[in-house]
């Protein structure tokens, strides 16, 4: 027997996995390690052996300097971090609204299919388009919000130009696709709800909110878990809506870490500093991904 014939069964899975692993290593793992490496340097993104106008080299080792500046000498970093936390907390509001919509469209009424697809529509639209629509909506001179407020005799609110409101304005825009996404998760979850349990609950006298809370929701737990994790990861990566709606403004007050990273590395030629922000963002996301995997494995174990 040749070596191949003896070990075919053991080797085959690895051979099949090899292309995917290779691509994953090149396009995901390597850039992560490289970013962390860059974050310990000062680099303007140009030729690493070159010299800057002020005589310093383009690429030089600075150790933890980028992180030290970030934590001790950059007010905008804390503004961004705080905004990320606001995003994290408030974007979760999309989940119960998505659940309510899912319960609403999960009825057998004529034409419900079309209504379902209408509610799902925002998720299919490009985020840039949503950003533009909401920017018009908030426009304090000609926007729909201003018109509605004027019906009640109220003055226009310049949502996106107010340092305290801008972030909330963008989060509300992010609900538009976010609610649609959680709704779809819950609709698929609802199709898997055990009818016998619902019947049993009904016989025991449960209805309305009790039924939802004690019978339906526990069965939707997997859907809720995915909705929470996807929403949180989405909120940490939030970038496109911010770029379109406020460009981080007014005066940087609606920036988040992802936007600041883009701004510092691509516009301000501070690759090392941008990489340090990326590394911090990566660590924050890791906490959630670790929690997600932990829950996932625990669930699988308990099912076995």
């Amino acid at each position: 027997m040749t070596f191949w014939e003896r070990n075919q069964l053991k080797l085959a899975p690895f051979l099949f996995l090899a292309p995917a692993i290779l691509i994953f290593l090149i396009y995901v793992i390597y850039p992560i390690i490289d970013s962390i490496w860059v974050s310990f340097h000062e680099w303007n993104g140009m030729d690493k052996n070159g010299i800057r106008g002020n005589g310093n080299p383009n690429w030089s080792w600075v150790g933890l300097k980028n992180y030290i500046i970030l934590f001790t000498d950059d007010e905008e970093f804390y503004v961004s971090l705080f905004n990320n936390i606001r995003w994290l907390l408030f974007s979760l509001v999309a989940i119960p609204i998505g659940l309510l919509l899912a319960l609403f469209v999960n009825q057998r009424i004529l034409g419900m299919r079309y209504i379902k697809s209408l509610f799902y529509f925002p998720f299919v639209i490009n985020a840039v388009v949503i950003g533009v629509i909401f920017t018009w909506f908030y426009n304090p001179k000609y926007g729909a919000l201003t018109y509605v407020l004027s019906l009640f005799g109220l003055d226009p609110i310049p949502v996106l130009a107010d340092e305290n409101l801008a972030t909330y304005g963008i989060i509300i825009a992010s609900f538009f696709p976010g609610i649609a996404y959680t709704m779809i998760l819950y609709i698929t979850g609802l199709t898997g709800v055990n009818r016998e349990m619902v019947e049993a609950g009904r016989i025991d006298g449960a209805s309305g909110f009790t039924m939802l809370w004690h019978v339906i929701l526990p069965q939707l737990k997997p859907a809720t878990l995915i909705a929470v994790v996807v929403t949180i990861v989405g909120s940490l990566r939030s970038f496109d809506l911010i770029a379109v709606m406020t460009a981080g403004g007014p005066w940087g007050s609606s920036e988040v870490l992802a936007y600041k990273m883009y701004q510092e590395s691509l516009f301000n030629y501070r690759m090392g500093y941008g990489a340090a922000i990326a590394t911090i963002l990566f660590l924050i996301m890791d906490i959630y991904i670790a929690w997600f995997l932990y829950r996932l494995f625990k669930n699988e174990k308990s099912e076995k």
Partner: peptide, 8 residues
């Protein structure tokens, strides 16, 4: 200056 110019 135009009011709310940071919106525009």
């Amino acid at each position: 200056f135009l009011e709310d110019h940071a919106s525009f």
